[in-house]
Amino acid sequence: MIHCEQVRFAYPGEAFVLGIEAFSVARGEAVALVGPSGCGKSTLMNLISGLLVPQSGAILVDGVEVNLFPLAARQRFRLGMIGLVPQNFELLDYLTVRENILLPFRLGAGGGIGDEARARCEELAERAGIASHLRKYPDQLSQGERQRAALCRGLVTAAPLILADEPTGNLDPENQDRIVSLMLEEAREIGATVLMITHDPLLLPRFDRTIDVPALRKGGVA
């Protein structure tokens, strides 16, 4: 599903350089990305999602070399192929929980939402335990509820690749477990690949594999 080769990325004007020889993630695999802060986990994830473009090397997602796409095409690719679950929820405060979950459909071509999408939104919200909050605004929810809403948004399009950037970082153990369980269950049901950044070693056994990003930078694959 994901294949990176000879990738090199540096932020303009900064000393930080992310260099990766090669690494792959198979379709349907659930992988945890670990490593200390500042080692390049989020950068790697942004490269895979097409938010960043490497200076050299190739990043293939589902056989497509994302980094060769122009910006607009990368945005479309992300919308269709990737379900993003950010660390800080990134919910729009002027949309209700339901509207936030369905937002990727609004951003897609036409901006329309079908009955199927609505039904999936209801189903995910039910499973995440936020069905009764669908009409509320994000500022009316607790942290855990907001993260569950953000997770539902990442899953609503049933994208083949789910990228989760430390989605449990701000949550209590109960909510952490709930989020990870829901994400992995849902991914397994639809056969999606999961790549999740985490600092919590207790969550690692829930994943098929763990990639240590600092080790990856040296050229090895965990």
């Binding site: 999602s49 992300r78 919308l79 990134e90 990727p104």
Partner: peptide, 8 residues
């Protein structure tokens, strides 16, 4: 956030 989600 919108760009991250895929807004062009």
């Amino acid at each position: 956030h919108l760009r991250h989600l895929g807004a062009d």
